[in-house]
């Protein structure tokens, strides 16, 4: 149902998205059958293609040419894909989107080479554009994403952290790449600096809202909907917003102690999820997501008049209210 809604939202861009999908398949084509299998395995697992969509939407404010923009949209999705392959090694994850991860289907080393391959293909693709600014934005983003992941590992299983730590983490983990997708799409299409700035900020706010919802869904959704056990973030030691809001709750603390000691039973996981789901933390987290969403909508209002503004608003609202 949710996926249908998303498809409907993208309907105006369908032919361009089809081009991106075809191009993604071409991009991961390799002389190594193992890399081919692993990459296609990833592509076929799907995904919302949020980053390429935002590249295209950002570019709509300038000289939009899909033949040029695909060389920006494809690498942004590839970079996201490559980072997921490496993240699964870091998190020791066996399942993603209901399918075995590359590292579980093959091994960690195959996952490393596949990720490096996809990452390099992304850069090979984007060098079809000569504009140094495009490369500077993307390169800085990639370095910052890594810095964010390093911080995430340092913050694992640490309860002495505050909201500032959490927001700093999700900014780098998610919001930056979405923000850069909007920005790079616009820069590549020759959009004026003021509009680029609004699009960049729009992407940032949407990205923050999106990640908060993602963290809420990790608790609210079922194992089946997630394609992995609900509460996986916490089980891996990642303290997300709902957990952070409950860290001092006396009823939550015994669960946290067991999670950190690695002794949480399946029944206790279910009970813990029930407790968090019914708590005020979910409402508070949703409110914080809404706050970012509102800011994103304000950035849309500040953009010059353009028919694509409605599409940006619809997609932002969908992302902020999604249920998968």
């Amino acid at each position: 149902m949710e996926k249908m809604k998303l498809k409907l939202l993208y309907s105006d861009l369908k032919s361009d998205i089809d081009i991106i999908e075809q191009e993604l398949e071409k991009a991961v084509n390799s002389s190594s059958h193992l890399i081919n299998d692993a990459s296609l395995h990833l592509l076929q697992a799907g995904g919302k293609r949020i980053r390429p969509i935002f590249v295209l939407l950002g570019a709509k404010f300038g000289n939009y040419d899909i033949e040029k923009m695909k060389n920006v949209a494809v690498p942004l999705e590839l970079i996201h894909m490559a980072s997921l392959v490496h993240d699964d090694v870091i998190d020791d994850s066996d399942m993603r989107r209901g399918r075995p991860t590359v590292k579980s289907q093959w091994n960690n080393r195959v996952a490393m080479y596949t990720g490096d391959f996809i990452f390099a293909r992304a850069l090979e693709y984007i060098t079809k554009l000569e504009d140094p600014l495009v490369h500077q934005i993307l390169a800085r983003t990639m370095v910052e994403i890594c810095n964010g992941e390093v911080i995430q590992i340092e913050d694992k299983f640490r309860l002495d952290q505050g909201l500032k730590d959490y927001f700093r983490r999700i900014k780098r983990k998610t919001a930056l790449l979405i923000s850069s997708s909007c920005e790079i799409g616009a820069v590549a299409a020759g959009v004026d600096a003021k509009t680029v700035s609004h699009l960049k900020r729009f992407g940032y706010f949407v990205g923050m809202s999106f990640q908060i919802i993602d963290d809420v869904l990790d608790i609210m959704a079922t194992d089946k909907e997630l394609g992995k056990p609900a509460g996986s973030d916490l089980l891996q030691g990642n303290i997300t917003l709902p957990i952070l809001l409950l860290k001092d709750d006396p009823q939550m603390q015994p669960y946290l102690a067991k999670v950190f000691a690695g002794t949480l039973t399946e029944l206790e996981r279910q009970n813990m999820l029930q407790y968090v789901r019914k708590s005020d933390a979910i409402t508070q987290a949703n409110k914080m997501s809404d706050k970012y969403l509102k800011k994103a909508l304000q950035e849309i209002d500040a953009l010059p008049k353009h028919p694509i503004k409605k599409k940006l608003r619809d997609i932002a609202l969908f992302m902020g209210k999604r249920k998968f």
């Binding site: 990639m142 370095v143 890594c146």
Partner: peptide, 15 residues
């Protein structure tokens, strides 16, 4: 992450 960071840095320097 060190490998990914170094890759990001080479790209950043050349960019």
């Amino acid at each position: 992450l060190a490998g990914d960071f170094y890759s990001g840095r080479y790209y950043e320097i050349l960019a």
